[in-house]
């Protein structure tokens, strides 16, 4: 399969603290990669660097073989249209309604759409994700779980081909988490490249075809899920306090 996104010898630092150290990993088009590791190991940073939200202090991030940070404005805009990021804490724009949250990416990438067409897309995405929020509500009116589904709906309005998800099931109940697993799996089956940071081995084992294990800012293993998970058997699942055996 064609590699759509690749990190080559990436370093990321905050101040003098190195969060990612010489990280190299590739993501194939249409693959489902789970990034796992202990809390604080650098998983979310890895995801943000891959999504172009953090500029690495060393190495490069390649999108379709080209350095993501050297793309022209137009090419970068295409990458943003083709990718979407679901944040761990939803990160819905708090001063906008749910409708406005979903319409903004549409307005940006599809200015040709009229109000009725946008409304139809927004409603379809809410329906597909099971986002039960009233469109006129503000994010602060929603529960954490509802915010997660609204954030997923926002991520899908432009029908991205690459989906980055940071802990999509954190701070939601088991029923909602199962619903989220099913949704993400069906999106992958629909052809999307899914890259997800998760603590849940159950979730990863049911959907992911690739596994990337991060420890202390370094990628210690990356490969087909079954083989890689077998090599780290019993070390991936996070305990009740967030600790893992890694």
């Amino acid at each position: 399969m064609e590699t759509v996104l690749e990190l080559k010898n990436v370093n990321a630092e905050i101040g003098s603290y190195r969060i990612l150290d010489d990280a190299s990993v590739g993501f194939s088009r249409g693959s489902f990669t789970a990034i796992m590791g202990a809390a604080g190991s650098g998983k979310s940073t890895l995801l943000k660097v891959a999504a172009g939200l953090l500029i690495p202090t060393g190495g490069e991030v390649l999108f379709e073989g080209r350095n993501l940070h050297h793309l022209s404005r137009k090419e970068e805009f295409r990458f943003r249209r083709e990718s979407a990021f679901v944040f761990q804490d939803a990160a819905l724009w708090s001063n906008q309604t749910i409708r406005e949250n979903l319409e903004l990416p549409l307005k940006l990438h599809h200015p040709e759409l009229n109000a009725a067409q946008m409304e139809a897309i927004v409603r379809r995405c809410c329906e597909e994700t099971g986002c039960s929020a009233e469109l006129g509500e503000r994010p602060s009116d929603l529960s954490a779980g509802e915010q997660k589904f609204a954030a997923l709906a926002r991520a899908l309005v432009n029908d991205p081909t690459i989906l980055f998800l940071d802990e999509p099931t954190s701070s939601i109940d088991d029923t909602a988490a199962r619903k989220m697993y099913d949704l993400i799996r069906s999106l992958h089956r629909g052809g999307k490249t899914v890259i997800v940071v998760t603590h849940s081995e159950t979730f990863a084992s049911r959907g992911a075809d690739h596994l990337c294990v991060v420890r202390g800012g370094r990628i210690v293993a990356s490969g087909p899920y079954r083989e890689t998970a077998a090599a780290f058997a019993g070390q991936l699942e996070t305990g009740p306090k967030g600790e893992t055996a890694l």
Partner: peptide, 8 residues
């Protein structure tokens, strides 16, 4: 970051 992620 959410604004950046959608291309704004």
């Amino acid at each position: 970051e959410a604004y950046v992620s959608v291309g704004l």
